[in-house]
Amino acid sequence: MDNSVSSPNSLVSVHNLSFSRGNKKIFDNISLEFERGKITAIMGPSGTGKTTLLKLIGGQLFPDQGSVAVDGQNVHRLRRSELYNLRKRMGMLFQSGALLTDMSVFDNVAFPLREHTHLPESMIRTLVLMKLQAVGLRGARDLMPNELSGGMARRIALARAIALDPMMIMYDEPFTGQDPISMGALVHLIKSLNNILGLTSIIVSHDVHETAAIADYIYVLSDGKIIGQGTPKEIQQSESEWVQQFMTGAADGPVHFHYPATDYVDDLLLSKKRSRRVSKRYGQL
């Protein structure tokens, strides 16, 4: 089904998307719009399949139902060559950076240029240095990926992602596991690149504070559904319990603290055998 009813300002439109992995329903009929030139964030608890959503947008996975349109094209209807052409205009930053380990930093950033263009080496060198300068790591160009810290690796991956001057970038958990300084650098980079290069950015994250600081629009996902959406201000004032628990990081709320179990006192007093049998049955709820 091709519901191409989307706002003309959207670069990426997700319509009625459903996707399951095995028996588990990851997405249940969700629709999202990603406006051109803006930073849109997708947030939610770990395991809600946020990375899966990026893979669906990029065409690496196929939805069970619904469609994804990027720049007016239905991603999953494209032929292989057309899909590859589309991907050249999409940049993606993986959680680990995904740099090619047998090449230097310079060669990593040059990779898309060497693979997809016939530019002479002198031009490629200029472009690579420019991209590295933009992320502040021009001096690291001869290092190997295993000599980089996590934060540096991500910035190099970012330089690589903008090598072909894409129209959009997808960030998969860019802030996870970063120290405050690297985090700050990354946040600054994402915002400024988005504005300077006129990019559309999609950030998948569960770092509430950082993401809310730079996002123009936020979608909060949980259990395969959208439980909240709006500008950061609207989200923070949301009346939904789920959204509030997520944004404030409360230990208990709609997402329970306790894993389902039998009554505590009974469990302590019952004999070991009986309690195991009972809790096993209980666990199948």
Binding site: Y84, K88, M90, M92, F94, S96, A98, L100, T101, E115
Partner: peptide
């Protein structure tokens, strides 16, 4: 390469 998402990354770079 598969475990560190390099293969995936390459696919997303249209290689």
């Amino acid at each position: 390469m598969k475990a560190t998402e390099q293969l995936s990354g390459m696919e997303m770079m249209a290689v």
